[in-house]
């Protein structure tokens, strides 16, 4: 029976596969001889292979770093897009803001210039000022709470 033309392609593929496997089973002396017979230096040739591992490792480190950066960026952006909710009564919030403004008199002056009296600032405005100052990193709510509890 005549072989189909495609059979020869398969034969060649099987042959190359078998040769590949033979190089896994070959003795250490056998592989060194093969490399030398190709006119290559064993030390240089093996260093090239080790370098392939190192290159892949470097690529992996860079990929991991990029993924971590992207995750951090995503986290930061989600923090910014999420409205900050300050837990506490209106009286507490007013107390915290008043205390913060005492600590930062320049901000207090700006606020009283706008409203003349701190007492005329509404509860909503107190909440809004507090949120802005926290988001800007000017004040730390936890520290404020601790300080005003004393």
């Amino acid at each position: 029976m005549n072989k189909k033309p495609g059979d020869q392609v398969v034969n060649l593929e099987i042959m190359f596969d078998s040769i590949a496997e033979s190089f896994i089973d070959i003795s250490d002396e056998g592989i060194f001889s093969a490399i030398k017979e190709e006119g290559r230096d064993v030390t240089v040739a093996s260093a090239r292979v080790r370098d392939l591992f190192a290159k892949a490792d470097k690529k992996f480190r860079q990929k991991s770093l990029e993924e971590a950066r992207a995750l951090h960026k995503q986290h930061v952006s989600s923090l910014h897009s999420r409205p900050l909710v300050i837990q506490g009564s209106a009286a507490d919030k007013r107390k915290w803001l008043e205390f913060a403004l005492l600590q930062k008199p320049e901000m207090g002056r700006a606020l009283t210039l706008q409203h003349r009296e701190f007492s005329s600032v509404t509860d909503e405005e107190v909440d809004s000022y507090l949120r802005q100052l926290i988001e800007l990193g000017v004040i730390n709510l936890q520290e404020l709470k601790t300080d005003t509890d004393d």
Binding site: F16, A20, I26, V49
Partner: peptide
């Protein structure tokens, strides 16, 4: 070195 070279040869033929 022998293992590295065997893996290299394997990848080349594969």
């Amino acid at each position: 070195p022998a293992e590295l070279l065997k893996l290299e040869k394997y990848s080349m033929w594969k």
